[in-house]
Design a protein around this nucleic acid. Structure first.
Lengths: 342, 342
DNA sequence: GCCCAATTTATAAGCGTTTACAGTTTACTT
DNA sequence: AAGTAAACTGTAAACGCTTATAAATTGGGC
């Protein structure tokens, strides 16, 4: 098998009797090419089986054709979902997706943001998924010249897609309240303050707001820190039951915390909704399986939407439209873990 | 927001006081560069945060610094896990990871393999995770000149990392047998024949082998096709109980099938291990949560291992070592879904 | 000290595109 | 039928890197 000599744009130009330039334009469907020329070029290209060298195109065009998706961790269901949806959009727009996982390690994040210029050499744009950035990192990103869009972020100077976390939490809490529960506990998440991710706090505020609207006060004993992991939820739920007091319903800041809560219940010989009602937020893949009532958020849609916004910016570099925050709808999915208080 | 001017090899040359050529050689650790020059170059490059333009490098005959990871779908727990582990290895070796999801769609796969030459211009190597390739695709990959390594594949002409699926299934079945169960059903997967993935079939063979070793025969009525999804497992389990016969234990070809089986049981007012023992393979993230007894396979390790093999090939392009198949250990994780037959 | 070989560095020619800019047609106007 | 604007096409210079090939430096042996 001999190395096939590459068919270049020159060959196409020669065969079609046109100039390289015209061929280039015709191939990319740019304006200012006559129909006749267009046809000739298409023809010749097909005949020769011509495929443009992406390396050359990129070199000359000054673009890389790569977009980086940055995630706190690639293994979480939530991110895998969003990444795949975004990847699809990017692929369809002709971009390759570079996956960068921060692996939940600050050192990795520091390293990445310490050399944004380097990243900027290799990709045209960046899609951030729930990455907690500080002021400096945000500024650095802006200075890098990269196109940026994000999902689930907060107070950032670029397009962002997310849900209204506070409202989602209010919905969740409201559902419990509507079922006649008034003695509510929350397994809340927590995140470093002053960064670009505010999910856990917003959900906590939503919880408090909902209670306030019903003229109930928050019992600080019933708001526990549970992180956002199964393990955290389990610990917090155990602590709640064993050392504080059994509420009539529990609002978990996210589904994984809720899973942990369900697990803790089971370990104690209890169950939802028999002993407590439990509700979460997210609609994790496993939630329907476990019968968890939850507020569903469209994860894939958010990834796809943000990817589209990014592509849009990439295609219109001059676009001065101010960055916008898009909120997608959440909705209650009622399953078996909640029921009316008797 | 000004577009940051690209740091080129020229800049590095200027700062180090050497010629472009020397810089290029030094950066790639080619011979014929004095230590002094080497140091100066490394220094200057670091100072400037220089990274070669992959497009320019590729165009001129060099390498891109990108590696593609190809997965059937990015959303499955299993792949997310392997991808993250591989990404870490690649990142530490200085490669960027390009994620390509086939989205379980043959058309996407066809398109990708129809233009491998294009891919080859953008990446130096490819890591395949459980991608079912036919003869032609394997040949095309070999012809592309790309470095290749894979996970979970079968009869491929490049380095592969996996587990011994047949043996794992034998272990699982053996565990059931050891608990005194002899009336076994299997919820088996199925995959197109003649392709480079043979997992489901190997597991079925392992099941049959284990039974044969105990001088038991397989009741064809108790081997059902369940695909490898939760839904498939649920359907198959329901079919088994309602239209065939209740076995004393069930071996599910993978954990997700087992989840479906557990669900079907619950829907019928039954449960494991009370009415049947259930065992799976994989040790999915949720398995410990659900108390599923299973044969654990080291998913992340496989991804990392394969990535290392790939990097090795990338670093030593002349390496003529024949491709090897590496099998990693699996081990039984006993939980609550199986118990001794009474 | 001088010459030659060995080692290191520099020059310059591609690689296959894109894209200003200049040049040529074409199609109307008048 | 000439003039002119609009439409199209061509020329040539990047783009940033690799790599022959040529040039310069170094070090030893005499």
């Amino acid at each position: 098998m001999t190395k096939a000599p590459r068919v270049t744009i020159q060959d196409v130009a020669a065969l079609s009797g046109l100039s390289i330039c015209t061929v280039s334009r015709a191939l990319r469907h740019l304006p200012n090419v006559s129909e006749k020329a267009q046809a000739k070029v298409t023809d010749a290209a097909a005949k020769l089986g011509y495929k443009a060298s992406s390396a050359a195109a990129r070199l000359a065009g000054g673009t890389t054709g790569f977009v980086a998706i940055i995630v706190p961790t690639a293994t979480a269901w939530y991110f895998a979902q969003a990444v795949e949806a975004a990847e699809e959009v990017l692929a369809d727009s002709g971009y390759d997706t570079v996956l960068v996982s921060l692996r939940n390690r600050p050192s990795v994040q520091r390293k990445l943001f310490g050399d944004l210029a380097g990243l900027a050499q290799r990709v045209d744009g960046v899609l951030l998924l729930n990455v907690a950035l500080d002021r400096g990192e945000i500024a650095a990103l802006e200075a890098s010249g990269l196109a940026v869009a994000s999902v689930g972020m907060h107070a950032v100077p670029w397009d962002n897609v997310g849900i209204d976390d506070q409202e989602a939490a209010r919905q969740a809490t409201g559902h419990l309240l509507g079922l006649g529960h008034w003695d509510l506990a929350m397994l809340a998440g927590r995140e470093p303050a002053g960064r670009s991710v505010d999910t856990a706090d917003a959900r906590r505020r939503g919880f408090e707001l909902a209670l306030a609207e019903h003229e109930l006060t928050v019992d600080p004993d019933l708001v526990l820190d549970a992180g956002s992991s199964i393990e955290g939820g389990r610990r917090a739920m155990t602590e709640l039951i064993e050392n504080r007091r059994m509420p009539s319903a529990v609002f978990a800041g996210c589904d994984e915390t809720a899973f942990g809560a369900l697990m803790a219940l089971r370990d104690l010989g209890l169950s939802a909704p028999k002993n407590v009602s439990v509700i979460g937020i997210d609609d994790h893949q496993m939630s329907w399986f476990l019968g968890l009532t939850t507020i569903a958020q469209p994860v894939a849609d958010q990834g796809a939407f943000a990817a589209n916004l990014l592509v849009e910016r990439l295609h219109h570099p001059g676009n001065q439209n101010p960055p916008a925050a898009h909120l997608l709808e959440t909705k209650l999915v009622e399953r078996r873990s909640t029921r009316r208080r008797r």
